[in-house]
Structures are given as structure tokens and as C-alpha cells.
């Protein structure tokens, strides 16, 4: 079952897509990842992890309406 989710872009992912956020429809994070990298091929060369509702994802997960997914390139704080 596909759900409409909000996707946030950060760091190099923001520069690669030219966007800070966008809405997508997907059933799970694996298909969402494919949909996003198909739309923004430049993202495919950037290593990134996903957070679902502010929690870092270790495995792929089903998506529900209004979930917030963040595209997180390697952290660079300090």
C-alpha cells in the first residue's frame, strides 16, 4: 500500500537535488530510495542514510501516510 510521505534533504543531498523537501508516494523505504534516485540521479553518487520520523533506519521499513523521511549524507559536525 503506497503512502504519501514528506522527504527532507540535507547537506550534499540538498545541493544535489536543489530542494530542501518534497512529497513522494511509496510503499516502503526501499522503493522510496529507488524513486528518489531515479528522479535525482546525482543523489546516487552520494552516500546517505535514511531517518524515519527522526530515527535512523537500520533496515528498510514500510511507510505510512505523513511519515517524515530524511535523506542524511555523512554527518560533519564539530
Amino acid at each position: 500500500m503506497e503512502a504519501e510521505v514528506r522527504v527532507l534533504f540535507f547537506g550534499a543531498a540538498q545541493e544535489a537535488t536543489g530542494r530542501t523537501e518534497e512529497t513522494f508516494r511509496a510503499g516502503d523505504t526501499a522503493s522510496l530510495r529507488r524513486i528518489i534516485t531515479d528522479k535525482y540521479p546525482s543523489l546516487a553518487i552520494i552516500p546517505f542514510r535514511l531517518a524515519l520520523n527522526r530515527t535512523m533506519l537500520k533496515d528498510d521499513s514500510d511507510l505510512e501516510k505523513n511519515d517524515v523521511i530524511a535523506i542524511l549524507p555523512p554527518f560533519q559536525g564539530g
Binding site: F10, A12, A51, P73, F75, Q76, G77, G78
Partner: peptide
Amino acid sequence: TLEMVKEKLPVWK
């Protein structure tokens, strides 16, 4: 704390 900030804080430069 410093090492965890480097690893876990979602900050970019």
C-alpha cells in the same frame, strides 16, 4: 561526548 557528537549529530558543513 565529542566522539558521539561527531558520529551521531545530524549536522553538515
